[in-house]
Design a protein around this nucleic acid. Sequence first.
DNA 1: TTGTATGCGTTATCAC
DNA 2: GTGATAACGCATACAA
Lengths: 341, 341
Amino acid sequence: MNKISIYDVAKLANVSQSTVSRVLNNYPYIKPETKQKVLNAIKELGFSPNEIARGLANNKTNTIGLIIENISNSFYSETAHIILREARKYNYEVIIIDSESDKENFKKSIDSLMAKRVDGIIVASTRMTNDIIVNLIDKNFPIITYNRRIYKDGYNSHVVLDNFLGANMAIEHLVKLNHKRIAYISGPLRYSTFYDRLQGFLSSINTYNLEVDEEIMYMDKLEYKKVYDFAKKLMNSNNPPTAYFSSTDNMALAVMEAAVSEGLKIPEDISVIGCDDIDISGNSFIQLTTIAQQKEKMATLTIEKLMKKISDKSNEEKVDIVIKPQLKLRKTTAEARKEVT
Amino acid sequence: MNKISIYDVAKLANVSQSTVSRVLNNYPYIKPETKQKVLNAIKELGFSPNEIARGLANNKTNTIGLIIENISNSFYSETAHIILREARKYNYEVIIIDSESDKENFKKSIDSLMAKRVDGIIVASTRMTNDIIVNLIDKNFPIITYNRRIYKDGYNSHVVLDNFLGANMAIEHLVKLNHKRIAYISGPLRYSTFYDRLQGFLSSINTYNLEVDEEIMYMDKLEYKKVYDFAKKLMNSNNPPTAYFSSTDNMALAVMEAAVSEGLKIPEDISVIGCDDIDISGNSFIQLTTIAQQKEKMATLTIEKLMKKISDKSNEEKVDIVIKPQLKLRKTTAEARKEVT
DNA sequence: TTGTATGCGTTATCAC
DNA sequence: GTGATAACGCATACAA
């Protein structure tokens, strides 16, 4: 391919190879005319520096890794879009890895990223306990957890939503609409997002003197079909919930589809509230009321903090950013039906 | 960070550094016991090879680039998911770049990818004429165009949908439902997807003896709001179309939203058919009839062909894969209303 | 202000 | 089978 190296440029410009390197790196003390000669030679040869070699010499690759669960999931793809854009501002490229949040996969993902010597890593798919991340933080490797966090004293390195508060807001909204029997849909508790939301849910249930019924709580793998089936089952039960709080918008869609298939009207018959506020939730045909993440703000902050860690290796400052969620009122929640008593 | 190199391993195992390299690369003729010694040392030190150095020595990075327009767009994110997964099977990582398909951006994207010495590139956001790609193909650099193609004799290197046929299928479907006035929504003609679909549209219009009316054709930048407004305008015109063929599902959603806002029922009042079959299109609240891409097949083939090009540099075989689309019947199309004549 | 020499961590080409 | 040693393309400490 591009077989021209810094040496070719040097020869053509009649200077040494190090001089070329210097102009490449904007070294200040170069005679303007030799700088010009070099620049000309570079242009004439169409030379562009080999970032790999540069990385080897520098110990810096100008690329970061982004580990997410599944890029085809709107929440992640919308986030990735912002991260890509922000990283680019710092002249960084990003390697994205879908890692399904499976433990073995996660390790492999980190390994390949480390082998490729990325300058930093953003992970959006960790469990609450994750020794690999702990280990990396110990080594002072630039790594920030996005959306989810690990829980370990002294290991703060995350930008996340205030998920406890988010759940509070959702339940409060529902309670004000007179809902008393609220189904809870979330993923496994080993993820901080779901763990925190559950705590928030429970605390709200408590403050409003509602009853906790595990029968109407789903806390398993977030597979569309499973949640769909679960919701259908609830809708057919003796004492069906009047409202559903779903930990992700995507799963709220599953609940909504279940309702359709059961001939239930939303929000007349049941209310549904989600979490995330993915793009499609605002669509006229969906109109999902939801607890919105501030993706733009979160992603931007994540990159900013990561870049700071990268550029200033000695900086061991913790990153502990918790963003306030927002209730986005749309059309899937309404006053609870009066029960026939 | 990981300061241990192949030399440290060599020292510990009491062999030369080249021997270590050999076991790393599975060189066949090594005495089993020395191999074992080396393996032990590697494990003991927790050594993992530096891919950057390896890349420099090898001229091979085991990473490819993927240039798309916007990863937050479902069509691309769903594609990216498959590509990531397939690339991983070949032990490849992928750098994703959102490049908004702007010309200057595109050049920059290619430049950074080349500077990072990726082994190959998949681009899903090219115009029909693109000298940069031509140039790369000339140099026999592994590059494949996905979804869109460039048109230049002898420069076949793409896997795309048969968009001409796709448009035919859409119009045929609509015509069978007795629609005669069909609006056409697509992006700019400098993209092969839209160009080909337009040709297919026109040919169908012709074979069914319908009238071409530029007033009901949109062929501009695919911005949600613009398409939404365009559709609203048409719906309020004297002679409104009874059906809409949209070149992307996403824009079909815009049309559908416009219909809602105008109090029009789908499919009773107007029919809408899309292109792509993104995940959300199958949702009960959307149920969009569409011309489906076979993303799984297309993405898998793309990686396969790209890997072949990478591993066999001398192979100058063209790749010219055109996939048949499928009509996915859902609920947004129906018999045209009888006009009051 | 510029050139020389060395190193970054591998692979590859020679020898032995 | 294995060990020196020279690339790979650049950055940089040290000289000049």
